[in-house]
């Protein structure tokens, strides 16, 4: 009996152990190292010769909050999150829902089609969208000109460029969220709907009473990860605009990359990444709290 109790106690650790240990070594430990670096002036020479690293306290953080480019990239990042997250979550949800309505083979086929952007090479995306967005020769402006609408500077105006990148990214990232929503939709027991049919519920009622509540987990998951994804927004501005025009599309992750890897200012870059890290934690914690209060 004693042996069994012991067994029951360690079982969960056997399941989570390997994963947690690996995470501790390869994710948690590095972040602690980074935290330490953020209080130093470490650059390339410091990397080669640790004796050249100086502890400089909060200097990096103070400089950051005076750095116009950093502040701008922070504002841009918030803009991306506020517009991008609802757009991405709602559109992938709608696609998943529509796919449930059609016959099985059509659903399979369209699932592949809607997943294609996620597997399309980023360079191909940059070339094609670069053409779509080209101010003078682009397809979008050509279509607009048919309706006598003036050309829009898709990537040439800081504000419009942000929106253009959001559109592109929503288009690209829908695939994965759609899959998660689909998996969740599939796991709603059919008998719920059958019971509702017997009660004579209409389609709207079924959506609101059965589908949406059953999807709470999935929606929560997709929202949390999408928020994190947008806060770490990097690849699209990197390939499409390199943060321009006038830093109008620069994001915090891109700023970190520029400082840390292009200019080898590891201390400064690490400090910026910590601010981003804290913002992400705060955003996630808020969502968990909201969910808790929603459940109660």
């Amino acid at each position: 009996m004693e042996v069994n109790r012991f067994k029951a106690k360690i079982t969960p650790y056997l399941f989570i152990g390997p994963a947690v240990i690996l995470l501790l070594i390869f994710s948690f430990l590095p972040i602690l190292v980074s935290l330490a670096i953020s209080f130093t002036d470490m650059n390339l020479s410091g990397l080669a010769n640790w004796s050249q690293i100086n502890f400089i306290g909060f200097d990096n953080f103070i400089t950051l909050f005076k750095d116009e480019v950093f502040l701008k990239s922070m504002r841009n990042t918030f803009f991306y999150v506020i517009i991008g997250v609802p757009a991405a979550v709602i559109s992938s949800f709608v696609i998943a829902l529509l796919l449930k309505f059609v016959s099985d083979w059509m659903s399979s086929a369209f699932r592949v089609v809607y997943y294609l952007p996620s597997v399309t090479n980023i360079v191909a995306i940059a070339v094609v969208w670069g053409f779509l967005y080209n101010q003078e020769y682009g397809l979008f402006n050509y279509l607009l000109s048919l309706f006598e609408i003036n050309a829009i500077p898709w990537l040439e105006d800081p504000l419009i460029a942000k929106l253009s990148l959001i559109l592109l990214t929503v288009w690209k990232s829908n695939g994965v969220s759609m899959l998660i929503f689909l998996a969740a939709l599939q796991s709603i027991p059919k008998m719920y709907y059958e019971a509702a049919d017997i009660d004579g519920a209409n389609r709207w009622q079924k959506l609101c009473r059965i589908t949406l509540p059953s999807m709470r987990f999935a929606t929560f998951f997709v929202t949390v990860t999408t928020v994190i994804g947008w806060l770490q927004f990097f690849e699209e501005p990197f390939v499409m605009t390199e943060g321009g025009p006038l830093n109008g599309t620069n994001s915090m992750a891109l700023f970190i990359y520029q400082e840390g890897f292009q200019y080898s200012e590891f201390g400064y870059g690490a400090a910026a990444s910590f601010i981003l890290f804290i913002i992400i934690i705060l955003a996630t914690v808020v969502q968990f709290i909201l969910r808790k209060s929603d459940e109660n």
């Binding site: 995470l23 501790l24 994710s27 948690f28 980074s34 970190i256 590891f266 934690i281």
Partner: peptide, 16 residues
């Protein structure tokens, strides 16, 4: 802890 590691901006941990 697991969730926390998800929030780490990718480039930061490369060198460590």
């Amino acid at each position: 802890t697991v969730l926390l590691t998800m929030m780490i901006p990718g480039q930061v941990t490369m060198i460590p």
